[in-house]
């Protein structure tokens, strides 16, 4: 058993995994790492299961001290990580010695970094997952939905002394400006023609009103002309349009059902890219056929499993 002690943290430093499944009919949200691709790579670099428990650090502010010599892995955003006085770039595993301090200073590129430990961090699974959801009081180190706090001790049981780095061609480009891909939903035909044109031909700016439940996009007003909806299940990445016409992309901690009309839902790969964008970033959207998106996702998952 090895330990990392938390010296400094923020409400945005959270224990996460792939999320909570099989309980959404009870009103329990999915939760889990927003950038699942980076979480998977962080784990893969240590030969962990892809969904082993990791730390999601949003924007920085986390400082850890090692109580043992070990090997950790970092993927996702470059949040200016420093191992004592040496900077640590993401997409690789690295050694940390007893007494050394690892701290995340500020965003250099991207928004969310994922830190993995050999075998995954130990945590009490609640309803099948350690994903931290404050609102529901579920997950995290103690199982009651708390973010990491000063004095917390992060334990892990695995061992790894083999360093890996992700080959350059596999490293996701966090500044990727390709349009986000949307699988169109059933209400798409009930938005005005102009709104449909605007949705897929305008720049959308990420609002500062963004959290793990959803990200609001600012741009032209989208007009829904259909009947009011009865609440129904909300998939990950659903783009709902409330009466003010400004779409909201619903993320891992979204409510399970809701009654706003939707353009469709972002693909998982687009969600991972969106999770790395800061407020003020500009994005575009484009439609993708469900079958095409499905093939791309299967290909990506197979590639993830095969690497190393």
């Amino acid at each position: 058993m090895s330990v990392l002690t938390v010296q400094n943290s923020t409400p945005l430093c959270l224990l996460q995994d792939a999320g909570r499944f099989g309980v959404r009919h009870l009103g329990v949200t999915q939760g889990g790492a927003l950038d699942w691709v980076s979480m998977s790579w962080a784990n893969k670099l240590l030969n962990n299961p892809l969904d082993a428990a990791v730390i999601e650090v949003t924007l920085g502010g986390l400082t850890l001290v090692a109580e043992d010599d070990c090997c950790l892995a970092l993927a996702g955003a470059d949040l200016g990580a420093m191992l004592d006085e040496r900077s640590i770039a993401p997409w690789r595993s690295f050694f940390i010695s007893k007494g050394q301090q690892l701290r995340f200073t500020q965003p250099v590129s991207g928004a969310r970094a994922y830190l993995a430990a050999p075998g995954g961090f130990d945590a009490l699974g609640v309803l099948g997952s350690c994903a931290t959801v404050g609102r529901e009081g579920l997950g995290g180190l103690d199982g009651i939905g708390k973010a990491l706090r000063e004095g917390d001790r992060l334990r892990y049981s695995g061992m790894s002394f083999e360093l890996h780095a992700l080959p350059d061609q596999r490293v996701p480009d966090l500044a990727d400006s390709r349009p986000l891909e949307v699988v169109l939903g059933a209400q798409i035909g009930q938005f005005s023609g102009v709104s449909l044109f605007d949705a897929f031909n305008s720049d959308w700016t990420l609002d500062s009103r963004a959290d793990r439940m959803g990200m609001r996009l600012l741009g032209p007003e989208l007009v829904y002309q259909g009947k009011p909806m009865i609440s129904e299940g909300i998939p990950l990445g659903a783009i709902q349009v409330p009466p003010d016409g400004q779409p909201i992309v619903l993320l891992n901690d979204r409510q399970t059902i809701g009654g706003y009309p939707r353009l469709g839902a972002l693909t998982p790969l687009s969600l991972a890219r969106l999770a790395q964008k800061l407020p003020g970033s500009v994005v575009r959207m484009r439609a993708v056929v469900q079958e095409v998106a499905h093939r791309e996702q299967v290909h990506c998952l197979e590639q993830l499993r095969r690497t190393f």
Binding site: V23, R24, H25, I230, E232, G233, I257, H294
Partner: peptide, 15 residues
């Protein structure tokens, strides 16, 4: 996951 609501059942399957 299977998410029931008033008039609908949303099926989330393993892709």
């Amino acid at each position: 996951d299977l998410v029931p609501s008033y008039t609908t059942l949303m099926v989330h399957y393993d892709l």
